[in-house]
Amino acid sequence: MSGPRRWLVASGLLAPTGLWLGVFLLAPLALVVQFSFATRDTGVARAVLPWTVDAYVTALNPAFLPIFGRTLAYASVTTVLCLVLGFPVAWFLTRHAGRWRNVLLVAVLVPFWSSYLARIYAWKALLDGDGVVNRLLSEVGLGRDGGFLLTHGAVVLGLTYGFLPFMVLPLYVACERFDFRLVEASYDLGRGPVSTFLRVVVPGVLPGVSAGVLLVAVPATGDFVTPRLLGGVEQSTFGSVIDDQFRGGNNWPLGSAMAVLLLLLVVVALLLRSRRAEDVL
């Protein structure tokens, strides 16, 4: 097949996907960027001309720094917890699950079969003052007046629960492709468990770790449902503040500017990750 004909065939195959991304991804993103430069109209929930950078000036106000830092802290802690909890699960599935592997994989995927919002509401009921968790802990003197809602721990717990499968699945794929004979060879050469894990296992599953960290950190950074339902004003994140601007705050330019800044942060993180991956290779 000649070059021009091959190009036409490839373009035809990619056209539906390109059209879909253009209409449902790039067009809304362009609209958000446009709103971020607009002037707020306090009469209605929309943005109007003339264009200005006032929304970005407000979004970069030092008053928002604690919220920004809290957002990064939640995302970072959630990612680390998902990695610590997810790796043993993925390792067990590939090494010791045997004929039960498919059943356990389905168990990992079961949460995706229900609404994320409904699951967070379930955690809200569990962590409430009259919830099961608080009542059980009260039996051993660890209960808390009002339960564990409106705390940083509740938000991190909800985020970790919600995004844990996104860490387990790429780690499972990486562990399944890992050559376990390398572990035996490391032991035969006199390496201990810790040295084998750090020098053999970690480099072997690093692509899965990298993918899992990305799949967890990005949505955890922008999540606003979990902090709103399980946290309070003191647990507000950048995502919840953006949501406030589009609903009760009636300030679409500010919400759009914050969304653009959050998107830029994610893009920078992705670029740094890709550069680090290239350095490793």
Score class of each variant (00 low, 15 high):
186 S>N: 02
186 S>P: 01
186 S>R: 08
186 S>G: 12
187 Y>L: 12
187 Y>S: 12
187 Y>A: 12
187 Y>C: 10
188 D>W: 10
188 D>C: 09
189 L>Q: 03
189 L>W: 02
190 G>A: 03
190 G>L: 04
190 G>M: 09
190 G>F: 07
191 R>I: 11
191 R>D: 15
191 R>M: 13
191 R>P: 07
193 P>C: 11
193 P>V: 13
193 P>K: 14
193 P>S: 11
194 V>K: 10
194 V>D: 00
194 V>P: 08
194 V>S: 08
194 V>H: 09
195 S>E: 15
195 S>H: 14
195 S>Y: 14
195 S>P: 14
196 T>I: 13
196 T>Q: 09
196 T>P: 09
197 F>Y: 02
197 F>I: 00
197 F>L: 05
197 F>T: 04
197 F>P: 08
197 F>H: 05
197 F>D: 07
198 L>F: 12
198 L>C: 15
198 L>M: 15
199 R>F: 14
199 R>L: 15
199 R>P: 07
199 R>H: 14
200 V>R: 06
200 V>Y: 04
201 V>S: 03
201 V>F: 03
201 V>L: 06
202 V>G: 10
202 V>T: 14
203 P>S: 11
203 P>E: 12
203 P>T: 13
203 P>D: 13
203 P>R: 11
203 P>M: 15
204 G>W: 11
204 G>R: 09
204 G>A: 09
205 V>I: 13
205 V>W: 08
207 P>A: 14
207 P>S: 13
207 P>E: 12
208 G>F: 08
208 G>I: 04
208 G>Y: 01
210 S>Q: 13
210 S>N: 15
210 S>D: 12
211 A>C: 12
211 A>V: 13
211 A>G: 12
212 G>S: 15
212 G>V: 03
212 G>P: 11
213 V>A: 10
213 V>R: 14
213 V>P: 09
214 L>F: 03
216 V>C: 09
216 V>Q: 01
216 V>R: 03
217 A>I: 10
217 A>S: 13
217 A>P: 10
218 V>Q: 14
218 V>I: 15
218 V>Y: 04
218 V>A: 12
219 P>C: 15
219 P>K: 13
220 A>H: 06
220 A>D: 07
220 A>G: 09
221 T>V: 10
221 T>W: 06
221 T>N: 05
222 G>P: 08
222 G>K: 06
222 G>L: 05
223 D>K: 10
224 F>M: 08
224 F>Y: 06
225 V>D: 11
225 V>W: 05
226 T>P: 03
227 P>Q: 00
227 P>I: 00
227 P>A: 01
228 R>K: 09
229 L>Q: 01
229 L>S: 04
229 L>E: 02
229 L>D: 00
229 L>C: 06
230 L>T: 05
230 L>V: 02
231 G>M: 03
231 G>Y: 02
231 G>K: 01
231 G>D: 04
232 G>K: 05
232 G>Q: 07
233 V>G: 04
233 V>F: 03
233 V>E: 10
233 V>D: 08
233 V>A: 01
234 E>V: 11
234 E>W: 00
234 E>H: 00
234 E>F: 03
234 E>D: 02
234 E>G: 00
236 S>P: 02
236 S>I: 02
236 S>A: 05
237 T>H: 01
237 T>K: 02
237 T>I: 01
238 F>H: 06
239 G>R: 00
241 V>S: 00
241 V>G: 02
242 I>E: 01
242 I>F: 02
242 I>D: 00
